[in-house]
């Protein structure tokens, strides 16, 4: 299947030349948000703006005009709760998901707070090894919580997309799953992932995007995970491989705490799947 989304930095002159594409636009300037929406939706379609700013969520100057624009907001921390609370009326009207960086010590607590007051949010994995026990607690809250709350990614993606017989790649949450999206630089060159884009590992260019599923480099890239098995990597023995796909092979101590977390996440996904299925019992 061909990827639908093109992830790119905001280059209006380039986007305006395209027709009928679906864009995910990355920016670090909230002054560009309305422009991005207008430009992308003229001849193409905007999927999401990924706004990465180095300010706490509480200090973002939200504007009424952002109301109908889907935004992924990547920030280092939540900031002051009372400042967030003061803006809740407007935030609740937005199509926004807030990602907090795991390098900040209060991120897991703050994600729980945001979720519980109805703000969709997610984990942005930072440079420091994640605290898997705490992530596990957060996952339990997200999946098994007693009352309705906003979703927390990537738990929401894994639990809602999980199928026991195939892999579930939550890179899609971060627009980094080549089955769904590819990354493009300012010259129209296309890479499979954000990491490939940074390393200038391009597979094609925008002119050939429509036939990308025929591209041998693309097809090969989709099977990159097989290398774990060829290398006999410990991750390939992990029971939770199907939802992790070795994403933390170079960070976490393999087969220890991350295995426990991802195994619990799979259990949670199974629980969620069975709960959904229950509604369709014939006898009911």
């Amino acid at each position: 299947m061909k990827p639908q989304m093109i992830v790119t930095l905001y280059k209006p002159e380039f986007i305006e030349k395209q027709r009928g594409r679906l864009f995910v636009v990355k920016t670090d300037d909230y002054g560009q948000i309305e422009d991005i929406s207008r430009v992308c939706n003229t001849h193409n379609k905007l999927h999401t703006i990924v706004l990465t700013v180095n300010e706490p969520f509480s200090l973002i100057p939200f504007r009424e005009e952002w109301k109908n624009i889907p935004i992924y907001l990547v920030v280092p921390e939540m900031g002051s709760f009372r400042d967030v609370a003061a803006k809740l009326n407007i935030i609740h009207q937005f199509k926004i998901r807030v990602f907090l960086n795991t390098d900040h010590k209060h991120t897991y607590t703050n994600l729980r707070i945001l979720s519980s007051i109805g703000i969709p949010c997610g984990i942005h994995f930072g440079k420091i090894d994640p605290d898997w026990d705490v992530i596990n607690d957060l996952m339990y809250y997200s999946v098994y919580g007693k009352v309705k709350h906003a979703s927390i990614e990537p738990f929401e993606y894994v639990t809602s997309q999980y199928k026991p017989d195939i892999y579930t790649d939550f890179s899609a949450v971060y627009f980094n799953d080549p089955h769904q999206s590819v990354h493009m630089n300012e010259f129209g060159k296309i890479a499979l992932t954000a990491e490939d884009l940074v390393s200038n590992k391009f597979i094609t260019d925008i002119e050939h995007f429509d036939s990308i599923e025929q591209n041998p480099l693309y097809k090969e890239g989709l099977k990159r995970w097989q290398q774990f098995f060829l290398d006999n990597h410990l991750c390939s023995y992990c029971p939770a491989w199907r939802v992790c796909l070795g994403k933390f092979a170079d960070k976490a101590e393999v087969n220890s705490v991350c295995k426990k977390f991802f195994s619990d996440l799979m259990d949670a996904a199974d629980y969620y799947r069975l709960k959904q299925q229950k509604g369709t019992e014939v006898w009911q």
Partner: peptide, 15 residues
């Protein structure tokens, strides 16, 4: 009281 526990209590009351 920790924030996490406070949210847990709030959820329990809410539910």
């Amino acid at each position: 009281l920790r924030w996490e526990d406070f949210i847990y209590i709030t959820d329990l009351l809410d539910s």
